[in-house]
Amino acid sequence: MSGTTITGNAMIDYFTALSNPDIVFLRYALAAGLLSSVAFGIIGSYVVARRISYLAGAIAHSVLAGIGISLFIKVRWNAHWCDPLYGAIAAALASAIIIGLVSLYARQREDTAIGAIWSIGMATGLLFLAKTPGYVDPMSYLFGNILLIARNDIWLILGLDILIVSLGTIFYNQLLAICFDEEFARLRGIRVELLYFLLLALTALTVVLLIHVVGIVLVIALLTLPAAVASQFSRKLWQMMLLSIVFCAGFTLLGLGYSYSLDLPSGPSIIVFASIVYMAVLLIRRMIRS
């Protein structure tokens, strides 16, 4: 009983802290998390339905190369314009294109090639971070650090949400057809390759958004777990998307709450919470069926 009271009080602390003008980073983190839930829900559903979460994972990890290189340039040559976020976006888009080409045209050993891109990206990033003058903690990027979120990030996330919602709506039927049966979609004259690259590029941008909140290593779980939970309750792809948004927002809101109240890192708190829900849902569904 005392356990529930402690966590109960802790959650009250969290909501009090959210309104405290001195703890602005918490509000930024929450705003970033809730706003990106829209992008995560939509793109996550496509990624899960098309079964390309492995590709999304590779894109996410290769982002570290972009962060490492841009931080190195920024500190070494005092280039203030060279924000790690730009590096992250550039690296994500570049790896989306490379991974897209590999998965479309590599006849064999696609998984090996993509696994290599995954690791090469991380290795490059770590090397550059190691050679960046001063001390940069790779942990912040790998597992998230909400203190790094700035006001500008929120605007960026909002912009990307608008982009993803509009593209996701305009091309919904085409993307649905491609995810379900790519060959048939091609026969209907849909530009399959183009839309596939669009999907990977949007995945890349989405992944970059929450790097400060959950980190490179964990972001893939936040992309796929809400969609996986939602798919258990959905009959249509758009239902899956709406539910994913709700689940993703819920995971972020409560996960951040626990991380703040219990003084735990935000990324792992959110992900552990999301995976507990995911496993519980699978278990309950299985019990109901049998």
Partner: peptide, 16 residues
Amino acid sequence: MFPVTVLDIVLMGRLG
């Protein structure tokens, strides 16, 4: 596991 209804699939024939 794909969340798609019968009508969704048949409508794919109308694409393009």
